[in-house]
Design a protein around this nucleic acid. Structure first.
Lengths: 341, 341
DNA sequence: TTGAAAGCGCTAACAC
DNA sequence: GTGTTAGCGCTTTCAA
């Protein structure tokens, strides 16, 4: 189609310059070319452009098969929104790779490193030892992981400050005077799970409390996991039972609350509750859950920002972005109750 | 990199034939080339391939800005899963276009019809008069809409059988002997809303019941919408109040149920409830909701199947795929109650 | 069955 | 400032 545009005065190079907004074209020429483009409805061919320029303006988002929660949790939709926002801002096209089985994973890994296709990759996974990471590292594909990556110091990542979020949640409970603050943790093969547990522990020891192993029980971020974990806590002998629980995700807090109600208990009257995520709808269950808000959508946008930086300036040094979290106080922790008493 | 493959015996054409699995290559040559490809770790350049072949193996999924519910409803994540499944099966790469504002919509519409980039487009929208549709129709881009499209008879679509689903739900309630069966409809600018209302009406008139306008109230598929709609219904004079409600989405059923409880009522004891979608988690609220199950994930896969057909065989005639729904009987309709009485 | 050669539509040096 | 030219890496006739 450049022929067509050419038929209106200038050479293809000039048209190319105009299309790509490059400097060094006389204003009147630029205007004329613009007009012809309008009239002819010319659309540049992306494939040709990608081939000649060496990059396609496409970034990939990889969601590993381990993430079954794609539809059980509002986290991923939110993250995708943020990433999509970022992609739009940077004029990139977003491609989505959702793995359903390790088999597909194998097959698509190849496509990911196919040259001339993806400019960069975002991996939405905070699992340890994602096999994709060394793969990308080796092929020098620009990529960034959502979730801290300890094992690969050269991998760039963006994450929320899970440690300090958990620290704040636990401290809040401690400050309110609760004596036995328990924790329902996330899965310990995810950084988010480990970091939140770490924040809980440190908050405890910083206040001179001994960490009691019985007060820590592990869930998997799901509602069902929180339900079972809370049941374990409630089965403790009465004097060992917690009077407050910091739960590592809102979904688990929902399950924990359900277990409490089935045992005839309520929050914060019997056991205070603090969650993590702030991803519960305000018109749903447990709208009064005190929780740690993490900026999911901004995380996605930040991932794209960092990735673009990597694409332009190279993989080194690794980018590390940590986004702040903060405590949102509602009813379930008992703080409001005390104030009005 | 073909050079490299070439260095192991044959010409680039032959390598190309092997890579694309074309016929007419001697088995031993094929094997030899395969081996060299293995050894060198050769990956074809997608951009070049797309340019030469005229298609890229990329399909786009467009989610219009009107869909704010991307994170409030499990529908879209599920649909995306299905589409992603389908894309994997057909060896296509999925690109995602999430619009957040009409402005972006404008900007990205252009990118969608850019030649040499997308082979086809799936539009996830059942709103009337999506401006994208005439646009795609005109540019002869292969596309398919998720959701029936009356206004564009030439547009292909896949949809679930909303009419018959609603018909089945309403008939079920009628069969159970309820005298005043109300309907909380979806938004009437979406086919799904209109079709479900249509099924309700027809089921009523088929059984000789007059449709009472007061018993139909409109929601927007959201929980909050259902809540408000049910409140309207409950404010009717006692003798006009419904004894059963067919609610056009599970989310609205959730809101409706909440309104009922706040009025001291329960389902099915005071008012029987039937929802639509079967997208509520079994461990969440209202697990006993009788509802119409729609195969969301299969809808997504079917959309890709149909799109591939269109890409290969052309846009005409328009493809029309309607997937079956079916009634899932649980407690909220009162059917199980009656049986055990 | 295989090789040679001509592009696919664009960008980017380089010369004018 | 603008035009000329040489590819980007692949597919695909067309001959051999």
């Amino acid at each position: 189609l450049e022929q067509v545009a050419e038929l209106a005065g200038v050479s293809r190079s000039t048209v190319s310059r105009v299309v790509n907004g490059q400097t060094g074209v006389r204003p009147d020429v630029r205007r004329r070319v613009r007009q012809v483009i309008e009239e002819t409805g010319y659309q540049p061919n992306m494939a040709a452009r990608a081939l000649a320029a060496g990059h396609a303006g496409i970034i990939g988002l990889v969601i590993p098969s381990a993430v079954a929660s794609l539809f059980a949790d509002p986290y991923f939709p939110r993250l995708i929104q943020g990433i999509s926002d970022g992609a739009n801002v940077h004029d990139q096209t977003l491609t989505l790779f959702v793995f359903h089985s390790p088999l597909e994973e194998e097959k698509l890994n190849a496509r990911l490193s196919q040259a001339g296709f993806l400019d960069g990759v975002i991996i939405a996974s905070s699992h340890f030892n994602d096999p994709l990471i060394p793969h990308l590292l080796e092929s020098e594909t620009p990529f960034i992981v959502v979730g801290r990556q300890d094992q690969f110091p050269q991998a760039s990542f963006v994450d929320v400050d899970n440690f300090n979020g958990a620290y704040a949640a636990t401290s809040h409970l401690l400050r309110l005077g609760y004596r036995r603050v328990a924790h329902i943790s996330g899965p310990l093969d995810m950084v988010a799970g480990v970091d939140r547990l770490g924040g809980y522990h440190t908050a405890l020891t910083d206040r001179g409390r001994a960490a009691e192993p019985d007060l820590v029980t592990h869930g998997d971020f799901s509602r069902a996991g929180g339900y079972i974990a809370m049941q374990r806590l409630l089965h403790l002998p009465p004097e060992e039972r917690p009077d407050a629980v910091f739960v590592a995700s809102d979904q688990m807090a929902l399950g924990a609350w359900q277990a409490m109600r089935e045992a005839g208990l309520d929050a914060p009257a019997d056991v205070a509750l603090v969650g993590y995520d702030d991803l519960l709808p305000a018109d749903g269950e447990l709208p009064g859950l005190t929780t740690i808000r993490q900026p999911v959508r901004r995380t996605g946008a930040a991932a794209v920002d960092a990735l673009m930086d990597i694409i332009v300036n190279g993989l080194n040094p690794p980018r590390r972005v940590i986004l702040d979290t903060h405590l949102v106080i509602r009813e379930s922790c008992g703080a409001l109750l005390r104030r009005t008493q």
